[in-house]
Every structure is written in C-alpha cells, then in structure tokens.
C-alpha cells in the first residue's frame, strides 16, 4: 500500500501542515511519500507519485475559511487526471487553522469533498484541527529545549563527572509531558486517521483542538503575535492603523 502525503502550506519550511503530515505518516504503514505543493512546478511530480498510490492525504492550512488559492489549480488538474486515468484513489484531508475551534475548518472539508465527487474519487473524510499553529510552535520549542538540555548535560557532566543529572532531565521531561498533554487530542485523532488509512476505511469528518481553554488560547495567540510584531517591527509601523492605499487612487 502506498500513501502520498501532500503538504499544501506555501511556507518553505517549519509549516504546521508539514509537521502534522509527518506526524500522521508515523502511524501509517506501507510505502509513504511526502510531497510539497507550493507552485505549479510541483504538480507534475505529485501526479506521478499518485499513479501507483492507494491513498492521498492533503495537509493544508485554512486560508480565509477555505482552501489556499495555490491549491485550487492543482485540484483542477488532479481532478482531470483522475477522470482520464479512471483513478479510484482514496482522499483524506487534514486541515489546520490558527483559531482554537477545529470546526472552523468545515468549509475547507466540504470543498475537498466536492472535489472528490466531481473527480469520481473516494472521499474518505478528514480531520479539522484548531490551534495547529500552537502545536507547531511547541514542537520547535521542545526541539530547542532538547538541544539545550543535551548541552547542559554535557557541561554538567564535564564539571561534575555525572552526565545524567536528574534535575536537568526531569525539567525536560516535564516540558515534554506538557506538550504531549496540550497535543494529546490532536495526536489521538491523528492515530485514528492513520488507522483508517491503514485499514482502507472511511474516517468521516472529525474536529479537534489543542487542549487549552479558548480564552487562554486567545491570550497566548495575542502575546505570540505581539512578540513577533516587536521583533519584526510591525508594532512600530501602524500596527492597528486604518492605512489608506498609497499607490492607488485616493478614496
């Protein structure tokens, strides 16, 4: 069995969609291929991989309540390709958004379902994830923490002779446990999705989220964007101002 995972994020690296696709693929058996869909030049390579694939998993971010614009021409091309080749590939989707409610991904799910109906291929459902961005940030933080922990262990080992300082290890394991707790629902729904892919079964539509109360998530998100805006300087360049167009006619 061959499964093709398509990371539909326009970001070159560190995308939440790419991370979730990799995480899902860990629980999928058989041959696996991860592809990136950013530009039209990616279409040919992906379609070639689909030739002998049993299932395809689209992993994409929610853009303005729907599918990112650069994905739409690929869907059209793939639809034509599926009809011409009488393909019966099974289609799954993982949608993630920056809001806390996974259910906000519902229109995107329906668009992919409509695409399958028009293309004569099998819609097997999908997972809508709320707060996927936080999951992505946490995995980057935990990797950085792991590196710092290892450096700290080495230096402590050199100075004391004990390379397995319990306190340092415990600190890292505590952080790891927190990440796993916040992401436990996403991981569980992800494993369920992988089980359906393995069993060639329909998954249906399911929605989950990061395990944080929504009012806290909003505070976290606002703090996150404030820090990023300070670092990038946007906070000093009319962060909230009702800017008027400079290069268009005056309104």
């Amino acid at each position: 069995m061959k499964t093709v995972f398509i990371d539909c994020s326009p970001k070159r690296k560190f995308s939440a969609s790419g991370f979730i696709a990799v995480m899902t693929s860990l629980f999928v058996f058989g041959s696996k291929k991860k592809m990136k869909l950013r530009t039209k030049s990616d279409h040919e390579g992906i379609l070639k991989e689909l030739e002998d694939a049993d299932a395809v998993v689209f992993s994409m971010p929610l853009y303005v309540d729907g599918v990112p614009s650069h994905v739409l021409p690929f869907l059209k091309e793939m639809g034509g390709w599926c009809r011409n080749n009488n393909s019966h590939i099974r289609v799954y989707v993982i949608a993630n958004n920056g809001f806390i409610e996974g259910r906000q991904n519902e229109p995107l799910m329906q668009v992919i379902e409509n695409f399958c109906l028009r293309s004569g291929i099998e819609w097997c459902g999908g997972l809508g994830i709320g707060g996927g961005v936080m999951m992505n940030v946490m995995r980057i933080v935990i990797v950085v923490q792991l590196i710092l922990t290892l450096i700290s262990l080495i230096f402590t080992g050199i100075s004391t002779g004990n390379f397995f300082d319990g306190q340092i290890l415990l600190g890292f394991l505590k952080s790891l446990a927190e990440v796993l707790f916040f992401g436990c629902s996403i991981i569980m729904f992800d494993i369920w999705l992988a089980t359906c892919i393995n069993g060639k079964k329909e998954y249906g539509k399911h929605y989950t989220r990061i395990m944080v109360p929504s009012f806290l998530f909003i505070i976290f998100a606002d703090i996150f964007f404030t820090i990023i805006s300070i670092v990038k300087g946007g906070i000093f360049r009319g962060w909230f101002s009702k800017k008027r167009p400079a290069s268009y006619k005056d309104f």
Binding site: S9, P10, K11, S15, P61, Y63, P68, S69, H70, F225, I228, S229, K232, G233, G234, R237
Partner: peptide, 11 residues
C-alpha cells in the same frame, strides 16, 4: 499567491 508569512500583520 499568499506566502503565509504574516508580514502584513507583523512587519
């Protein structure tokens, strides 16, 4: 298409 950089918010 949009590159997903969020610079229109943060930069």
């Amino acid at each position: 298409p949009c590159q997903g950089c969020f610079n229109c918010w943060t930069k």
